[in-house]
Simulated assay, not measured.
Amino acid sequence: MKKLFAVMLGLFAMLSFSACDLSDDDATNFYYETMEITSATFPEYFEFGKVYPIEFTYKRPTDCHVYSGFEYNHTGETERTIFAVATVLDRNDCIELTDTEGTDSFDFQVRYTNTYTFKFYVGEDESGEKQYLTYEVPVQETATE
Rank of each mutant, 00 (worst) to 15 (best):
D63G: 01
V122I: 14
Y31L: 06
T103Q: 14
E96N: 13
T98N: 12
K59C: 07
F118N: 07
E96L: 11
T100Y: 10
F108S: 12
G76N: 04
Y116R: 07
T81V: 12
A86E: 02
E44R: 13
E33W: 06
D104R: 06
K119H: 00
V110L: 12
R80N: 01
C20I: 14
K119Q: 09
T113W: 14
F48A: 07
D24H: 01
A84K: 03
G69C: 00
C20F: 12
V51E: 12
T34Y: 15
T57P: 03
D90Y: 05
N92Q: 11
T34N: 15
D25N: 15
T113L: 15
F118Q: 02
D104V: 01
T117D: 02
L97W: 05
Y72P: 00
Y31D: 06
Y116W: 05
F56S: 00
N92S: 13
E126K: 14
G123Q: 07
Q109I: 05
K50D: 15
T34A: 15
I37G: 04
T62R: 01
A40T: 00
V110Q: 08
F30N: 09
V85S: 00
D107C: 03
D125I: 08
T78H: 02
E79D: 08
H74S: 08
F48Q: 11
T41H: 11
F70D: 09
P43D: 01
L89D: 04
D26N: 14
G49M: 11
V122R: 15
E101V: 10
T103H: 09
